[in-house]
Structures are given as C-alpha cells and as structure tokens.
Amino acid sequence: KKIKIKIKVYNPETKEVLELEIEVSEEEAEELAKKLAEELEKKGYKIEEVEI
C-alpha cells in the first residue's frame, strides 16, 4: 500500500513557503517524514505541519 506524505515548510528568513508531496510504502512513510523534517530544520526551515 502506498502512503502520500505532504509537508508544508516555512522559512522565516525568506518568508518562503514550500509544499512537498511524495508517495512511499507504509513502512517507509514515518521514517522518511521524520528524516525530511530533521533535514529541513537543519537548513533553517520551521516545520509547520507533517501529514501522513
């Protein structure tokens, strides 16, 4: 079964909002969402919402 992940991120420095969407297997979904959120935060983005 495929799971659709939508991530909306906001960069306070540039006032930019990015929306990302990807489909992955159920097993990958939670781990991938967690890794993406961590990487984006390292780059200065503030995570507003992660929906699985």
Rank of each mutant, 00 (worst) to 15 (best):
A33Y: 06
K1Q: 14
I3Y: 15
E21V: 14
K43A: 10
A33Q: 06
E19F: 12
Y10I: 11
V17K: 12
L20E: 03
Y10K: 11
L32I: 14
A37W: 09
T14R: 07
L20S: 03
V9Q: 01
E13C: 09
I47T: 02
E39K: 04
P12I: 13
L32K: 15
P12V: 06
K6Y: 11
V9F: 14
V24H: 03
E19S: 12
L32P: 01
V24L: 03
K34D: 05
E49I: 12
L36V: 10
K1A: 05
L18H: 08
I22D: 03
L32G: 05
L32E: 10
L20Q: 02
E38K: 05
A29N: 02
E48A: 03
K34F: 01
I7G: 00
E28W: 06
K4I: 11
E39F: 08
I22R: 10
E16A: 14
G44W: 01
G44S: 01
K15C: 15
I47F: 02
K35T: 11
K4R: 09
E30I: 15
Y45W: 03
L32T: 15
L20P: 00
I3M: 15
K4F: 11
E38P: 00
K42C: 14
S25A: 12
E51I: 14
E28Y: 15
E23Y: 15
E23S: 08
K35E: 13
V50Q: 02
T14F: 03
E21I: 13
I7P: 00
I52C: 14
K46M: 10
I22L: 07
N11Q: 08
E16K: 07
K1Y: 09
E19K: 13
K42M: 11
K6N: 13
I7N: 00
V24C: 15
E28T: 09
S25Q: 15
K2Y: 11
I47A: 02
K34T: 03
A37T: 13
E13K: 09
E13L: 07
K1V: 11
E27D: 12
K8E: 01
E51S: 09
E16Q: 13
E26M: 15
L36G: 01
E41C: 11
Y10R: 10
L36E: 01
L36T: 05
Y10A: 04
K4C: 15
A37F: 08
E30C: 14
K2S: 10
I5R: 00
L40A: 04
E23T: 07
E26G: 05
E27R: 09
K42L: 07
E26T: 08
K42T: 04
L36R: 01
E38F: 12
E23N: 06
V24S: 13
I52W: 06
L32S: 11
K35S: 07
K43C: 14
V50G: 01
K2D: 04
A37M: 14
I7V: 06
S25D: 10
K4H: 14
K46S: 08
E23M: 09
L40R: 00
E26P: 15
E48C: 15
L18T: 10
E48H: 04
P12Q: 15
P12K: 07
K2L: 10
N11S: 15
K43P: 01
E49M: 13
L18R: 02
I52R: 01
V50S: 03
A29S: 14
T14D: 06
I5P: 00
Y45F: 09
K6R: 13
S25W: 10
E13Q: 04
I5C: 02
Y45D: 01
I47C: 03
E51A: 13
I7W: 09
E28D: 12
Y10V: 12
S25V: 15
V24W: 02
L20I: 14
E16F: 12
E49S: 13
K42I: 06
G44N: 01
E49C: 13
E51F: 13
V9N: 00
K46A: 08
K2G: 11
I5F: 05
T14M: 04
L36D: 00
A33T: 08
E31C: 13
L20C: 11
K35D: 05
E39H: 05
K35V: 12
K8C: 03
E23L: 10
G44L: 01
K6T: 03
P12W: 14
K6M: 05
K42D: 10
I3S: 11
I5A: 01
S25L: 09
E41R: 12
K15T: 13
E39S: 08
L20D: 01
I22Y: 13
K43R: 12
E26V: 03
I52A: 02
